Computed example of a mutant assay.
Amino acid sequence: MANEKIKVKNVGIQLYTVRKEMLADATGTLKQLAKIGYKELESARSEKGLYYGLQPKEIKKITEDLGMTLRSGHVHIDKDWDSTVAAAAETGQDYLICSSLPSNGQTVSNYKHVADMFTKAAEDCRKAGMIFGYHNHEYEFEKENGQVLYDVLLDNTDPELVKMEMDLGWAILTGNDPVDYFNRYPGRFPLWHLKDMDKAKQESTEFGKGAIDIKKMLQVADKSGMKYFFVEQEEYAGTAMDSVKHNYNYLQKLSI
């Protein structure tokens, strides 16, 4: 039927959302997330390493046994980059995402330097069978001489080699329209962080309680080239697990 609405499937989560829980009991927390219904996972650096004290092959097996896929991971480009790439390849993940700007300086020249770093990192990832990407915050949308710094990264990297993980919350909170980016840079955004934002507090909140139109964003997923999205929330009204349950249930009630 032409008017048939599509349900949201393959809901992912960025594990930073449950960072304390993962550090306390990684396996138990993954079991809870699987029980809620989350299917796709993105890891983040922690006090216990890239995989919360688990070895790469361990987390691969645990997630697979739970019917989940470790799809991506947030890392830094630093002195341990080679071992970071090797460990990520062991997990079988598809994407390796630089989680924050690896060089200081809110200037066009620095962002061009970072773009060169990203090109090299992306080549390393490709050799290891993965796709490299970058996750934005809010500061990338600052300007120098009228030039948006985020655009410098996009314009100075190969669109086939360097992808972007659009954090929808930060993009919208800074007054930018993700759809504008999807139109100008089609196919560059295979990954998303899906979050709602409290504008007054300038922080994340549970779906439906903030300023982001979650449904509208999901309706333009094809335009961005989005393959996977990860629910992310850094602050909570109650417990982290209550919030991830709320967010999952909110998505299950949507028809796109």
Rank of each mutant, 00 (worst) to 15 (best):
A24P: 02
W81Q: 05
A24W: 04
G53T: 09
K163G: 04
T84S: 01
F132D: 06
I131K: 14
E64Q: 11
G238H: 14
W192N: 09
Q233I: 00
M164N: 03
L161G: 06
M166V: 01
Q202G: 00
D177R: 09
N136H: 13
V152L: 08
G187I: 12
V220H: 13
L96C: 02
A86P: 04
G175C: 07
S43R: 03
K201G: 02
K31N: 01
Y16E: 08
P102T: 06
N110T: 13
S99F: 03
N156W: 05
N145Y: 05
T27K: 15
G210R: 12
I131T: 15
K31V: 08
Q252W: 01
L191V: 08
D177W: 02
M217P: 00
T157A: 11
M117L: 10
A128Q: 06
E40Y: 04
I36H: 13
R19H: 15
Q202N: 14
G133D: 11
S100Q: 13
K245V: 14
K216C: 00
N247G: 10
V148Y: 13
A200H: 13
T239A: 10
K215V: 02
T157Q: 12
G146S: 09
E138P: 00
M130E: 05
L154F: 14
I13L: 14
L251M: 14
Q219V: 01
K245E: 07
L15K: 01
S46P: 10
Q14A: 09
M1Q: 06
L15Q: 07
R45M: 05
G169E: 07
A24T: 07
E232L: 11
D151A: 04
G225Y: 09
N156C: 08
E138N: 09
A89P: 01
A122W: 02
A2F: 05
T205E: 07
D213R: 12
L191Y: 03
D25R: 06
L154K: 08
D196H: 12
C125E: 03
T17I: 13
E42K: 07
G105Q: 12
I212T: 10
E40T: 00
A115G: 11
W81A: 02
K35P: 00
H135I: 01
D213V: 08
H246N: 10
K209N: 13
M241C: 05
I36C: 11
Y248D: 04
P102R: 03
A44G: 00
A115S: 15
Q233L: 00
F182H: 07
Y228H: 15
K112M: 07
Q147A: 04
L161Q: 13
M117P: 01
G105K: 07
F132T: 05
A128K: 03
E58R: 05
P178R: 02
G37S: 08
V11R: 09
S243K: 07
